[in-house]
Amino acid sequence: MTTLDTDLRPPQPPRLVVFWHRYRRNRAALLGLFLFAIVVLMALTAGLIEPGDPLRRAGPPLTPPFVDMATPLGTDQLGRDILAGIFYGARISLLIGVAATLISIAIGVVIGALSGYFGGWVDDLLMRITEAFQTIPNFVLLLTLVAILGSKIEWITLAIGLVSWTAPARMVRAEFMSLRGREFVDAARNLGVTNTSIIFKEILPNALPPIIVYASVIMALAILLESALAFLGLGDPNYASWGNMIGQGRAVLRTAWYCAAIPGIAIVLTVLSFSLLGEGLNDALNPRQKK
């Protein structure tokens, strides 16, 4: 006899396990995860390893690295400990990265979802607004916003979020446009589910994987934008940030290159970790895209 159609297949391993197996296949992504873990660890242990204000004077100015054990990575022209700056800078960079990403993804998801789901004049209106933002170069808009709002760290974060939501909005819109025609959306409509529930409970979870992947890109971008601002002297002077350190180290670049180079390496590795992380997430979340 034929096997009965109602016999269930053996249960599959939980999604997280499957996800981790797929992620693990990509070596570079594991390196990204490792670097990311180091940055997070640095941010968490900054207070333990380097107690006290990172902006205080810790030794004679312009001590090269590996000379004085009290300041292992040397000091800058004001005698501030570079190692402490790197550790506390990790906090600021992560904080700005996470907060700005959340802001930009939140705006992007709402605008993209509305315009992709409803289409028509809603789509036209929202997309013209998006295009208006896109025509102004990101960094110019960011400079303008910071000039208006001021250099407090909250405003900088908000401004970075405000200049980087356009790409996620377009991406979410494209996802919604393809998903809204799917049968399961019709099925939900047919059950009498409200539009809000359809957008957030039916379609959004299915549109999430590419958004998560893109979030890692925005995170890296946000850190770079903050560094660029600080480099121009527009960062918040009350916090040790990698960008501030490079900005100040620029003045002594020829005599004490390490003042700018060490925070520069920190930025490169952090941004690299996010890129690799994003690539690994992409492989793990969209397994069919490759091959």
Binding site: R182, E183, F184, D186, A187, A188, N190, L191, G192, T194, E202, P205, N206
Partner: peptide, 20 residues
């Protein structure tokens, strides 16, 4: 929305019509 419960539908493609 209230009337929807009186008339229900079974779709052609059972994979596409169930939210994955």
């Amino acid at each position: 929305r209230a009337m929807r419960k009186e008339i229900q539908m079974v779709f052609q493609d059972p994979m596409a019509s169930l939210n994955p």
